[in-house]
Amino acid sequence: MSLIFAQDLTKVYALGEQRVEALRSVNFAVEPSSFVSFVGPSGSGKTTLLNLIGCMDKPTSGSLRVAGIDTSSLSRREAAEFRGKNLGFIFQDFNLMSVLTVYENVEYPLLVVQNVSAAERKERILTLLDTVGMLDQKDKHPDQISGGQKQRVAVARALVTNPSLVLADEPTANLDSKTAFRVIDTMHKMKDELGVTFIFSTHDRKIVGEVETIYTLTDGMITGKASGKGGGHV
């Protein structure tokens, strides 16, 4: 069964008297343990699509099933619960909480969103921080670490709840090449080791070159699907 299944997915925004069609009858499916990227120019609908998959917005029409759930029927509270259980988020600007340390930022979803025992929490956090190479920085605050380090912490935070799907919106946009590759490597490793599905919204060629499937969005429509790492156009 597909992890994500979208059929005739349409999203229309009303801007005053104008109607903006951000997504037009989009159809696609993502299998578990995939590394998928949606690419396209600004305004093509990438972020809208990620917001719909992330249950932060609802489609105007069409259906979207994520992890077997019709997300359009979820209430605010149910959507939050669904996100906490099944999804991880990585943001372009890292969005770490400045008042918490690296360790506490990774701990936050386990404490506030999931109810995980202290021992298990500690083990998961330390393992993940070690995996992303941030164990020695665990007591620092976000303003004491670099952008690349922040993004690695964000990756750890996204993965600590053992989600089946991680949504990453331009995760390497604020990173230099070396750091970006390191972050991508980390995510690859997580995908291979934990079977997590990663979906990126990006125009970063570094990511595009690493993913397994690339969807091209143009004016709210999927205009192409290609395989990464040697895959040909479909």
């Binding site: 939050a80 619960e81 996100r83 906490g84 259980k85 988020f89 400045s98 709840t161």
Partner: peptide, 16 residues
């Protein structure tokens, strides 16, 4: 506001 958005996005319930 952005921090609140992040908290909500990663699954913090409105009540919390």
């Amino acid at each position: 506001i952005r921090e609140i958005g992040t908290m909500a996005a990663i699954g913090t319930k409105p009540g919390k």
